[in-house]
Design a binder for these strands. Sequence first.
DNA 1: AAGGCTACCAACCGCCACTTG
DNA 2: ACAAGTGGCGGTTGGTAGCCT
Length: 360
Amino acid sequence: MHGQNLIKPGLESSSSPTLCSTQIVLIMGRSTLCYEKEGLKRGPWTAEEDQKLTAYIQQHGHGSWSSLPEKAGLKRCGKSCRLRWINYLRPDIKRGKFSLREEQTIIQLHAFLGNRWSAIAVHLPKRTDNEIKNHWNTHLKKRLIKMGIDPMTHKPRIDALSSSGHECHNSNLNHMAQWERARLEAEAREAGRYSSNKQALLRIQPKIHPGTDPLSLKPRPKCIDVLKAWQDMVTGMFNFPSRDNLDSPTSISNSPNALVQVSTGETIVDPNHLYTCNELVYMDQMQELEGWMDEPTSSTVALTQYTTENLWFADNVAAAADLNEGSSESDTLIGIPVSFSSMEVEASNGSYPIANNGQP
DNA sequence: AAGGCTACCAACCGCCACTTG
DNA sequence: ACAAGTGGCGGTTGGTAGCCT
C-alpha cells in the first residue's frame, strides 16, 4: 500500500478488541504480521531497496524469506520482500499492457478455474497472479458484464435471458465446465511438477508416460473433439481482428492440439517436438477417456448433445457484441468467428477445423 | 484553475496448508 | 501429536494519475 501510516485502527492501541487476537498470537510466540516488528518499513519500495533486494537474490538466491531482509540489509518483513520480488523485480516478468490473446486466455481459464489466479498464472508464465487479478478486476470483468455475461459463472446473466428454454443448454455448459476444469487443474499440476522449464515447454520423456510409447497412442476419442469444439467456441467468442498483435503467445493452452490430426482421429506425436504441458495432459487424458468412452456416462452424453445446441449461446454473445458496438472502449472484445456454424457441424461429426490460433 | 470522480495497480492483510522441531 | 514457523494465495485497500465538469 502506498500509505505511510498503515497501522490499522484497532491494531495501534492495546485497548483495541482487534489487537486481542494479535496479542494471543504474540503470546504463543508466533508472529505472522509484518507490522508487529518495530522499525520495519512499509509502503512503496524505493529504488535503493529494489536494488538491494535484487542484488542479494541474484547473488544468494532468496533462501528463507524471513531471514532475507536482515541479510540483505533491508528494513522490511520477509513477506514484503517476497511480494516485491515475485510481483515486480523478478527478471522474467513481462510488464505492460496485456495482449488481446492474453486477455482471451485469462477469460477462458477464469471460466473454468474461477478466481484461482495462481493457477491461471501458470498458463501465462511471464505474468504474475497479482497482475492477472488486477487486470481481471479492472478490465475483463467489466467487459463481460457489458456483454451480458456473468463474470463469475461466465454464463449469460439471468436477466439477459429472454426465454426459459435454455436450462438444458446451461446444464450442458456445466458439464463442459466440469470436464475442462479438471483438465486445467491437472495441467496446472503438471506445470508445477515440471516447472524447471519456465516456459512450460517440455520434451516428452519416458517418465512422463511410463511404459508408453508416444508413437503408439491409440486413436483419439470423438468426445475430445467436442471438448475441443467447446474450447474453440469460447476462444471464438473473443477472437479479434488482425489488429491483435499476438505478441504474447504466452498461453500454452492456446494451441493445445497443435499436433493432433483431427480429421482422421489419429494422434501424431513427434518425439523431436517440444510439447506443452497442455498437450501432454491432453494426451494423458485421451488415454484415460478411452476407457470411459466404452461406457458412456451422462457427462459424455451431454458433451455430444452440447454441440447441437450451442448456437443459442453464440447468438447471445453476438447480440451482446451488437449492443456493445459504439462503445467508447476501443479494445472492446467481441466477435463470433464466421466459421462458427461450420465448426459446430463438423464438431458433431467428430472433426472440426483447427482453431486459428492453433499450429498447422 | 480547481475540485470531484474514476481507473489503475502496488502493496497489504488474513487465512490456510505445509513443514519443521 | 502438537505448536511454531514459513510460504503462498485470494481479497482488499488506498495513493496516484488522469479525466471530467
